[in-house]
Amino acid sequence: MKKQVLAAALLCSLVAGTAMAQQPAEGPWMVRVRAVHLGSTNGDSTGLGLELNDKWMPEVDISYFFNKNVAVELVLTVPQKHTLTSRGTSLGTLKHLPPTLMAQYHFEATGFKPYVGAGVNYTRFSSVNLSPGLDVDRNSWGPALQAGVDIPLGGKMYLNFDVKKVYIRTEVLSGGAGVGKFRIDPVLLGVGLGWRF
């Protein structure tokens, strides 16, 4: 009886070991597709009461894992059109393109994979169609912070929840002269799917 139990245990361990060996390891790349809500902080030192509208936008993120804990992520989208208002009155529209590069640390947990990140954002303003004489500086550099979680769904697919704070600021110009800073500084709440390969 003891010999049979030992043989069965040995067989089970061999089968389990073979199954684990056959399971493909995750590669260093991960691509996520998210729906992201951009909520602007709307800080304004111009005295004009400037506000940029909130909106939903698509986001694609490409990550490279140096090891199981450390990764870098490039956050991409398409130029986003916004309406700029002054105390509820429209001043016109503009677009912004905000690629962000993040360094991330991924924690080890059972059933989910939380992470935190920090990096730098570059925002390019374009298609600026504002009231006559009114303009904005076209370039913005600022820090970015991030926290999120990847939940395995099987087949190297993950459900992702993510929040970012991105510091985007621009000089507001009237007649070519600076009149103050406008801080968009959005909070980005995202949900999406990721694929590891």
Results as ranks from 00 to 15, higher is better:
V166T: 13
K81V: 01
T18K: 14
Y105H: 14
V36G: 01
N67R: 14
Q4D: 06
Q80C: 12
R169N: 15
N129H: 15
V172A: 02
L145V: 14
M102A: 10
F65T: 01
V149A: 05
K164A: 07
L193Y: 10
D150R: 00
V5E: 12
S127D: 13
R34L: 14
P152G: 06
D137Q: 15
V128G: 01
L94G: 05
Y122K: 09
H82Y: 08
A177N: 15
P143D: 10
G47Q: 06
H82L: 09
P58S: 07
T100L: 08
T89Q: 10
P114Y: 14
I184C: 02
T110F: 10
V36K: 04
I184K: 00
A144T: 03
G133E: 07
G154I: 05
V70S: 13
R183I: 02
K2R: 04
L38Y: 08
H96R: 08
V187H: 13
Y105A: 11
L74N: 15
T83L: 06
L50F: 11
T85Y: 08
L74V: 13
P24G: 06
M1A: 08
N67V: 15
D44L: 10
T83K: 12
V15Y: 05
P79L: 00
C12Q: 14
L48A: 03
L159Q: 03
S131M: 00
G192K: 12
T100A: 12
P99G: 06
V187I: 15
V36Y: 05
S131K: 01
V72F: 11
L153K: 03
L153P: 00
F197M: 08
V15A: 07
K156G: 06
L97P: 00
G17H: 14
L134Y: 11
L189R: 05
S126L: 12
Q23A: 15
V166I: 13
L74R: 13
N160T: 13
V120H: 00
R32Q: 10
H82R: 05
I151E: 07
G175D: 11
G178Q: 05
A118R: 02
I184D: 09
T93W: 03
D150Y: 00
Q80P: 08
L52I: 06
P186A: 07
M57R: 04
G47V: 04
P58K: 07
G49T: 12
L193V: 14
R34K: 11
R87C: 03
K81S: 06
V136E: 07
Y64H: 15
V75F: 07
V179K: 04
G155V: 09
R124E: 05
V187P: 02
Y167W: 15
K156C: 10
E171A: 14
V70Y: 14
L130W: 01
D54R: 05
F65C: 03
S63V: 02
G43M: 10
A109L: 13
P98G: 00
Q23Y: 11
S90W: 07
A71N: 14
